[in-house]
């Protein structure tokens, strides 16, 4: 295995595109190194992108936020303004693994690992994030929900890298949240994950809503019916019931060592309700902690 640490995106894309054997991007490495260690992957080249300034920075302007793909969970958490704008996204990223893992793990890596249970992905999808992609043929953007096409499968072509994410500015009365269900309190992979972002008007009526579920299908889902359930309501009990039903209906889960189909379908509804309530509280300006 060879290791390269280019300082420009172009160089990184070129290295990846021109490698005949298996090449992998190294960001935080918290998935990649485990897969190498356990012989799941045997790349001949890893390209460490952390020496590229662009993928390591967080910036914002009137239109919104740019978060580099290789910004770590710990760095996201320390960014007070980002945390205030998109607390659900930051919290989701901070649920990945331990404090130690937070020191390394990135949202770019979380997405590109291609796991349906990735914690930050439903939060990004709910927030309406765009994935910024660079490749040998230039740059493009994709909605985050379109990046994963299946388990360990991405809509990226050879040589393409996720360089970062673009998030809109937080709506005036907007709020987001991410909750997951795990058997323990920490250190587990999500059995179900749920991200909700919503906005309300001055009267408290929901004007926009997006919900995404993780670990209930081959890839994180954007639940289209979520908006139908919430928009135009004050996100009251009956609206939350509809949202929960929409969440459960959207699930196409499997039985595995982490949970059963039935369990995932039921808990998706429970989490949808709870997550939306957190998002709503935040939209109302309350400062809340999800965990």
């Amino acid at each position: 295995m060879r290791y390269a640490a280019p300082e420009t995106i172009e160089k990184a894309c070129h290295l990846l595109a021109s490698e005949q054997g298996l090449a992998r991007v190294l960001a935080g490495g918290t998935d990649l190194l485990v897969q190498i260690k356990t012989d799941v992957l045997d790349p001949v080249l890893v390209v460490d992108i952390k020496h590229i300034a662009e993928v390591r920075s967080i910036t914002n302007d009137a239109k919104g936020w740019h978060i580099g793909a290789a910004v770590t969970g710990a760095e996201l958490k320390e960014h007070a303004a980002l945390r205030a704008a998109w607390p659900g996204v930051v919290e989701a990223a901070n649920l990945i693994g331990s404090t130690q893992v937070q020191g390394r793990a990135t949202m770019g890596g979380n997405l590109c690992n291609g796991s349906p249970a990735a914690d930050s992905v439903p939060a990004l999808i709910a927030a309406g994030a765009m994935a910024l992609i660079a490749g040998p043929n230039g740059r493009r953007e994709l909605p985050v929900e379109d990046v994963m096409t299946g388990v360990r499968k991405l809509a990226l072509t050879k040589g393409e890298i996720i360089t970062g994410f673009r998030l809109p500015a937080r709506p005036k009365h907007g709020g987001d949240a991410y909750l997951r269900f795990i058997p323990r309190t920490e250190m587990d992979i999500a059995v179900v994950g749920c991200g909700v972002a919503l906005a309300i008007d001055d009267k408290g009526v929901c004007t926009a809503a997006r919900m995404s579920l993780g670990a209930v299908a081959a890839r994180p889902l954007l639940v289209a019916d979520a908006a139908n359930a919430l928009v135009g309501t004050k996100v009251d009990a009956s609206a939350l019931d509809k949202l929960a039903a929409a969440a459960s209906a959207a699930c196409r889960p499997i039985d595995d060592k982490r949970g059963t189909k039935d369990f995932r379908i039921k808990v998706a509804g429970v989490l949808a309700r709870r997550t939306a309530q957190f998002a709503l509280d935040r939209a109302h300006g309350k400062t809340t902690q999800t965990h």
Binding site: P183, R184, T185, E186, M187, D188, I189
Partner: peptide
Amino acid sequence: GFLDYRIPVASD
């Protein structure tokens, strides 16, 4: 492994 063989962690 310790990921899915779930021994109690400090916060449990």
